[in-house]
Design a protein around this nucleic acid. Structure first.
Length: 189
DNA sequence: AACAACCTCAACCGCATCAGA
DNA sequence: GTCTGATGCGGTTGAGGTTGT
């Protein structure tokens, strides 16, 4: 298992012919074309079909964070920022879960926004040290907690408002009510 | 104008989990 | 039940841009 990962994204001699670094418009175009035909799955095969010297993982990331339709680019709104702050307070560094509540935003974008804007502000607000963003989040949880740990707060269930617009006010008010009542629920799971 | 320091964000890495054989 | 490849996620890095001196 580990071998497959190592084989795909390490800098081993076996992968040195792979492109790295920034994607070119040509690569983007090829990738989008292949995904349009074959769908966004089997990334290794997609990379091969597109003739890209990229690993499947890199193709997936590029698609998910940049090329995917409905990606909302540009400034995070005040409403979104407030939501991120509150969701992070509740969920910790579960960026994909937070991103799921912000249509058009990616986990990577939210993570970057957190580290570059919000964590700094949070540490200032709490009299913290500021400075390096490394290791500042502090509320990261064990990996086994991901995907919903049994018995504890089930974020997936909590956020299952499948018939609702993710940003509608009812959901927000439900969330805020929960947050006010159990604001620290995430911390000691 | 030149340089340094800082900031932002796209991309990479390593690991865990999922799913199919 | 085990193995293996694929996928998803959070943490981290580094290039390029911006701001300050």
């Amino acid at each position: 298992m580990a071998m497959s990962v190592m084989e795909e994204n390490s800098a081993s001699p076996f992968s040195r012919q792979l492109n790295r670094g920034a994607w070119t418009p040509e690569e983007d175009k090829k990738l989008a074309e292949v995904i349009a035909v074959h769908g966004a799955k089997r990334w290794k095969a997609i990379a091969a079909k597109a003739g890209l010297k990229r690993c499947g993982k890199s193709c997936r990331l590029r698609w998910m964070n940049y090329l995917r339709p409905n990606i909302k680019r540009g400034n995070i709104t005040d409403q979104e920022e407030d939501l991120i702050l509150r969701l992070h307070k509740l969920l910790g560094n579960r960026w994909s879960l937070i991103a799921g509540r912000l249509p058009g935003r990616t986990d990577n974008e939210i993570k970057n926004y957190w580290y570059s804007h919000l964590s700094k502000r949070m540490s200032q607000a709490s009299g913290g040290r500021g400075g390096s963003r490394k290791r500042e989040a502090g509320v990261a949880e064990p990996r086994e907690a991901r995907g919903g740990s049994p018995g504890a707060f089930d974020a997936d269930e909590f956020f299952d408002f499948s018939n609702e617009s993710p940003l509608n006010l009812e959901w927000v008010s439900r969330f805020l009510q929960h947050d006010n009542n159990q604001g620290h629920v995430n911390k000691n799971q």
